[in-house]
């Protein structure tokens, strides 16, 4: 969570509220923040750390593992209408990539701003080529986009 806290300013600039959730109590969250996270991130964790003791919230989102007794890593991007636009679920040993979360938020915001008239192809980065779905584009994506355009033009072998 420190990696997300460290990039909190970017989330705020994008108008994104962050909520973290684990099965630890709010009291444990406080001590983790005060004794450890605040040493990694100036000022400590700037977003609410929710206490899902018992895993009811995680169960609702399909990320609670009853045999482990914890919520696995689950990241949900929720739009202003309260609709889940993206989800990523990982087992505990591998951490998230905050860059990818931010990239996906920017992409979903672009799609929303254009009311779905634009779609972002694989590896899209802000400033990269977008596609405008239409009848004419069917079978013609190859004229508009190439895998080499992905990742800011770094999609080359």
């Amino acid at each position: 969570m420190s990696a997300v806290a460290d990039r909190y300013a970017e989330f705020q600039e994008l108008g994104v509220d962050v909520i973290s959730v684990s099965v630890d109590s709010q009291f444990v969250h406080k001590i983790w923040n005060d004794t450890e996270l605040s040493k990694m991130v100036d000022g400590g964790v700037p977003f609410p750390m929710a206490a899902d003791t018992g895993g009811a919230v995680g169960t609702l989102y399909g990320v609670y593992n009853p045999s482990l007794g914890v919520n696995v890593r689950g990241r949900f991007i929720i739009d202003p209408d309260g609709v889940i636009q993206a989800m990523e679920v990982l087992t505990p040993p591998v951490g998230r990539n905050v860059d990818e979360t931010i990239r996906q938020i920017k992409a979903f915001q672009r799609v929303r701003e254009t009311e779905g008239k634009e779609a972002t192809p694989s590896g899209w980065q802000p400033g990269g080529k977008v596609l405008k779905p239409s009848a004419d584009l069917v079978g013609n994506v190859w004229k508009e986009w190439n895998p080499k355009d992905a990742y800011g033009g770094k999609g080359t072998k």
Binding site: M1, V4, F11, L14, G15, V16, D17, V18, I19, S20, V21, S22, V23, D24, V28, H29, I31, W32, E36, D52, G58, Y61, V63, L68, V70, N71, V72, R73, G74, R75, F76, I77, I78, D79, P80, D81, G82, P92, P93, V94, G95, R96, T101, I105, Q109
Partner: peptide, 18 residues
């Protein structure tokens, strides 16, 4: 938080390593 974007992040536990 309706009307705002939300990143909802579940994680296994405080004081874990990753």
């Amino acid at each position: 938080h309706l009307g705002r974007w939300v990143a909802l992040c579940f994680y296994p536990g405080d004081f874990t390593f990753v």
